[in-house]
Design a binder for these strands. Structure first.
Lengths: 185, 185, 185, 185
DNA sequence: AATGAATGAGGCTTCATTCAT
DNA sequence: GATGAATGAAGCCTCATTCAT
């Protein structure tokens, strides 16, 4: 694992725990066991660490969601996408917290969020095609993505916080509800 | 205007513009034209400025909402409360931003939010009585307050952002929709 | 002696010994026995210390040179000015080094030098009047000032470096030579 | 052009623009597009870059000045030397600035200046012979060199700054004046 | 009530240099 | 010959806070 990767990972851990502002560079340096200058060899400044982390994770999301979605009808694909994201979040708690708390906070400037849109192009295409093929209502695609993410997030939260264990059928129900929100008819 | 009031006002302006974290004491001091020590004469530390500001504004909300609500039936009172809050927000943009962005953020600790509950006692009483008198559904009163605030906030946002000017009848509609959400049957 | 004065004095000592660039803030802090923040309470940044020092000393020069010059003819005044500066430099070795090494270096930006011109207004007036009254050749006054300063500086250097002690008559000779450079005929 | 030469050239450009102190190694590295380690492969440390640059340029001066001076009498040789240096400076503005601003500054230690004396041995010999042959007054040869350089520098400055274009006859005049300063009688 | 001098910990960043490849 | 990762000391500056007046 390269020093750069270590810094990114450490930063992810720290800011998901304490927030961006509460996380100082010296803390990142101390925690990652890397030298002062090493951080600045890889990143222009503190902000660039956050930026890179954000883009990295956002790209992850985009890629993960569309894995194995090249077959089946819209419904089947939707289900796959949903489960992809769900499992990703369940298996990567830090990415989940980051997506929930950091990615939406005002610390991430809008310009950066815009730059990251490209990683959602495939997802966007899926929804746009669905609208074109009269499968989905003609919502704004960005809104659809947000709703889709939001649904998964809600279930992940239940999965994490509730004492009751989620069963497979609960997930199927959640997917069903989510799907119904988009389809025509 | 006392020095203390100046500090509070300046702080309000700064944190609604930049957020709590981005606002330093030195900035408050510089902006308010008050001496260093004067701030510490009136406030124990930086946190106490925020605390006092929060309590002040929260008390404002509570008082404002219940103004002139001692007459009429529940519906009439509801309408008055709604309009009270609406006009307060429209006339105090900083209070609006504060209520929206700061008051809900994690920078305000839960303990402080709890302390501020007392200022909502009258509002809470209104809803509790309504439930007792079978006018309202028996929701949790905190939830009811949140919904009530949320409704007003939504309309204020429309008022602020939309190019279309809100007409009196639109407000009446909004109040009607809000009211329907609470009442039995 | 105020902390601010201590910082200025220490800075003067350090930069005349080592140059501006070789003098770090931490050194100034350590040497002056003042706290980090104290420096920044009095000065906006490192540059402002230099600026203030430069203006302070430059004002000194201007004032010192013109002391007791309100009587006598041009020649008598010239002699007084010359001796004033000579004694000032002899009694304030740091000011002398500063004037020689620092004040002319490119570390002092032209803009600052321009700002300091005002402190030489009396000296300039002396020369301008002399020209008007046909006592002096009509040189550029800035050039005249430079020459005047340069002459004194040369003698101070001899005074400092030579093994031979300067006698009163040597000074009178120097003044005489200096004076001849300016006068008509 | 070798990497080493690129580093030297870049350094020359940077320090003539900003001064030695203001020029950091990182800047040289960034600007020259050469790797970090490559610089240290060719130079022991930052100082050595300056040293090498200084010696290189100084050697240039020495060589250039004496080009085509093996024929003619002292006067003819003097004229050739003068024009050699003049054209070199005119065609190598960076070398000119370096010679003027850097080479004389205290950043170049005396020890280095002494080491570079050897490159002036031919020039020195010219003047020493001239003294021996009773052509020149018996000044100190180093002083003579300084004066010679200074004269050329002055004219180059006029050439660069003045709006009036220098004509051949002006150069001849300058050489004449310069020459007269040295010769006996 | 009000002031502003004084503090020192801690923040981010730049720097010259070393080392393994 | 060339590269770039890695280092840590040192630089400048901001911050919240305390204290004497």
């Amino acid at each position: 694992m390269s020093k750069k990767a270590i810094v990114l990972q450490t930063t992810l851990e720290l800011i998901t725990t304490q927030g961006i502002n509460a996380t100082s560079l010296s803390q990142i340096i101390k925690e990652s066991g890397v030298a002062n200058g090493t951080v600045y060899h890889h990143f222009k400044n503190k902000e660039e660490i956050i930026t890179e982390l954000y883009l990295m994770l956002t790209q992850d999301f985009g890629t993960v969601v569309m894995r194995n979605t090249d077959q089946g009808d819209y419904k089947k694909q939707f289900s796959t996408m949903w489960m992809n994201l769900f499992h990703y979040f369940v298996n990567n708690p830090l990415a989940f917290v980051f997506s929930e708390q950091i990615a939406r906070s005002p610390e991430i400037p809008q310009s950066l969020k815009d730059r990251a849109r490209k990683y959602f192009s495939e997802i966007e295409l899926y929804f746009r095609n669905g609208i074109r093929d009269k499968v989905f209502k003609s919502y704004n695609t960005m809104v659809m993505e947000e709703l889709f993410f939001g649904n998964v997030v809600s279930i992940v939260k239940i999965h994490e916080n509730e004492k009751v264990t989620l069963q497979e059928k609960h997930l199927q129900q959640a997917i069903e509800i989510s799907w119904r929100g988009f389809v025509k008819e």
